[in-house]
Design a protein around this nucleic acid. Structure first.
Length: 261
DNA sequence: ATGGTGGCGGTGCCA
């Protein structure tokens, strides 16, 4: 069972990159972020032609998340707890019916939170607390789950090319890191770090200032596994080559393989 | 480098 996450930065701009990656990588389930599209604008026919069922939460212009699956899906949430009326499209969650039993997958587009010292940062931290509440509820069910997405948090200084350059950035704030640790400390496993204890594993390179060619990257796209999923973790990967292709997203796919019993 | 790039929507906002 291969589960992946990819911030595509506009699903319309990225349709051909996305379809060719799906055909090559063959994930069983993938969560997408930054669709920047409403439901009628989503390239559903192209994705379905690749074999995937499509579930999404969209909005005009910004945000937008989707869950694609080769297997039957029952949507279990389209927002985190305490959603407001015009809640930004940042969370989707589904229960996948695999041949080996159920697997819940959550797709996360965590608020950026810049600049710090504003209501945007406050909102980021509050959103992380809501996510933690949802994770607690999922853990209480004692079932296998994966929470994947663009977390917009740089967990430690080895996950950023220049800690000094990001000292005042919301992605690096002690409060952001502490909120991510609180989530992990519930008993979740950062899949990439389970296989790469202390090496550089970037998932994002800014479009600006030649970040890609200089390898000025960040690790902000994560797959967090429940204990039941972590027990089955057999491989992880970051499809870095996607960043070097024509008209790339600024993020690349991150995936993990679960050997289900 | 008080710049720089990209996407959306049709101007500035967001990342």
């Amino acid at each position: 069972m291969k589960v992946a996450t990819w911030n595509v930065n506009s699903v319309r701009k990225r349709t051909s990159n996305l379809v060719s990656w799906l055909q090559r990588a063959k994930p069983d389930v993938v969560v997408l972020q930054e669709l920047k599209a409403q439901e009628p604008q989503f390239p559903k026919l192209e994705i379905e032609a690749a074999g995937y069922k499509v579930e999404m939460v969209g909005q005009k212009g910004f945000n937008g998340v989707a869950l694609l699956s080769l297997h039957p899906v029952e949507i279990t949430a389209r927002a985190l707890p305490d959603a407001v009326a015009d809640e930004p499209a940042r969370y989707i969650e589904g229960r996948i019916q695999t041949s080996k039993g159920p697997l819940t997958v959550g797709g996360i587009y965590l608020p950026n939170g810049n600049p710090i010292g504003t209501e945007k940062f406050t909102y980021k931290i509050a959103w992380m607390e809501r996510l933690t509440r949802r994770a607690k509820a999922l853990l209480a069910a004692e079932e296998m789950f994966v929470l994947g997405g663009d977390y917009n948090v740089i967990p430690t200084d080895i996950d950023v090319y220049s800690p000094a350059a990001f000292a005042d950035d919301a992605l690096c704030q002690p409060q952001s890191r502490a909120a991510l640790r609180s989530l992990l400390n519930l008993g979740l496993t950062d899949a990439v770090r389970a296989f790469h204890l202390d090496d550089v594993q970037y998932t994002y390179w800014d479009y600006q200032a030649g970040a890609w060619s200089k390898d000025h990257g960040l690790r902000i796209d994560h797959l967090l596994l429940s204990p039941q999923a972590a027990d089955r973790l057999s491989a992880v990967g970051i499809d870095k080559a996607e960043r070097g292709k024509p008209e790339p997203s600024d993020h690349v796919p991150v995936w993990c393989e679960l050997d289900l019993a």
